[in-house]
C-alpha cells in the first residue's frame, strides 16, 4: 500500500494541479482549466506533439511488420541454426539500458551518414530506432500467441483447398489479431513515451513531445506541463488498457473453445 502510495500519489497530485488556477505550480489557487487552453495555443508543444504522433505511428507499423516476421521465425521454423542466439538478440533490446541503445544507434546512424550520406538525423532516425525495440515487444507477443494457436485450424484450411498464403491471410493472421493489435498499441505507446533514445538519435529539425517537455521543464515547471502530462497520462492509460483488454478477451475465447477429452 505504501509503495502504491509513493507511486501514485504524485501522479494524482499532478492531475489535480493541472486544474490549478494559480500560476505557481505548488500553490493551489482554485479550479480552472485555463492551462489546457494555454497548452492548445502553445505552438511549440503542438508541433512536437504532431511529430511524436507521426513518429509513433510509423514506428509502431514498422515494429509490427518486423516483429511479426521475427515472432513467426521463432514460433514456427523449428530448430533452425542460430535459433537460440536469435531469440536472445530479440530479447536484448528489452534489457539493454536505453542510454546504451540510444548511443549505439547514434553511432550507427553517424557512421551510415558518413559512408552513404544517408540518413540525415531527424524523424526518420527516431522512427527506425523506435522500431528496433518496438519490434522486439511485438515479436514476444506474436510468438506467445502463435504458441497457443491451434495448428489444426491451419491444417483444416489446407485440407479444404486453401494455399499456404491464403491460410496465412485468412486463418493465421486473423487468429493472432489480438497480439498484432496489442503489439502495435504497445510499440506506439513506447515510442510516444521515449525520451532517451529519441534525444540521442534526433537531428536539429525533429523534436518529439517528451523532448519539448523536458527542455521546457529545465527552464522551470509551468502548469502547462502539468496539463500536458495529464493528457499524456490519459492517452497512454487508454492505449495500454485497450491492449490488455484485447489480450484478455482472446484468452477468454480460447477457454470457451472445446477441449479434447484425453483418451
Amino acid at each position: 500500500m505504501l509503495g502504491f502510495g509513493f507511486l501514485y500519489a504524485p501522479i494524482v497530485l499532478l492531475v489535480l494541479y493541472s486544474f490549478n488556477a494559480s500560476r505557481l505550480v505548488t500553490v493551489w489557487g482554485g479550479f480552472s482549466p485555463r492551462w489546457y487552453g494555454a497548452l492548445f495555443r502553445n505552438e511549440a508543444f503542438g508541433a512536437a506533439a504532431l511529430t511524436s504522433l507521426e513518429v509513433a505511428a510509423a514506428a509502431a507499423t514498422l515494429s509490427l511488420v518486423l516483429g511479426t516476421f521475427a515472432g513467426f521465425s521463432m514460433a514456427r521454423f523449428g530448430r533452425f541454426p542460430g535459433r537460440l542466439v536469435f531469440g536472445f538478440l530479440l530479447l536484448a533490446p528489452l534489457i539493454v539500458p536505453e542510454v546504451i541503445l540510444g548511443l549505439s544507434l547514434l553511432l550507427l546512424f553517424v557512421a551510415c551518414q558518413s559512408w552513404f550520406g544517408w540518413p540525415s538525423r531527424g524523424m526518420l532516425t527516431i522512427m527506425v530506432a523506435h522500431a528496433t525495440f518496438g519490434g522486439c515487444f511485438v515479436s514476444v507477443l506474436v510468438r506467445a500467441q502463435l504458441a497457443g494457436f491451434d495448428r489444426a485450424l491451419e491444417e483444416a484450411a489446407l485440407d479444404l483447398g486453401a494455399r499456404p498464403w491464403t491460410v496465412l491471410a485468412r486463418i493465421t493472421l486473423p487468429g493472432i489479431r489480438p497480439a498484432l493489435l496489442a503489439g502495435w498499441l504497445l510499440a506506439f505507446t513506447l515510442s510516444l513515451d521515449d525520451l532517451v533514445i529519441a534525444s540521442f538519435v534526433t537531428g536539429p529539425a525533429a523534436t518529439t513531445l517528451p523532448m519539448a517537455v523536458f527542455s521546457s521543464v529545465r527552464l522551470g515547471v509551468s502548469p502547462e506541463v502539468n496539463a500536458l502530462a495529464t493528457m499524456f497520462l490519459a492517452a497512454v492509460f487508454v492505449l495500454v488498457a485497450l491492449a490488455g483488454w484485447l489480450m484478455a478477451r482472446q484468452e477468454r475465447r480460447r477457454q470457451t473453445t472445446p477441449r479434447i477429452r484425453p483418451i
Partner: peptide, 8 residues
C-alpha cells in the same frame, strides 16, 4: 478433425 478445428 478430432478437435473439429472450426475457424473461430
Amino acid at each position: 478433425f478430432q478437435s473439429y478445428a472450426l475457424f473461430p
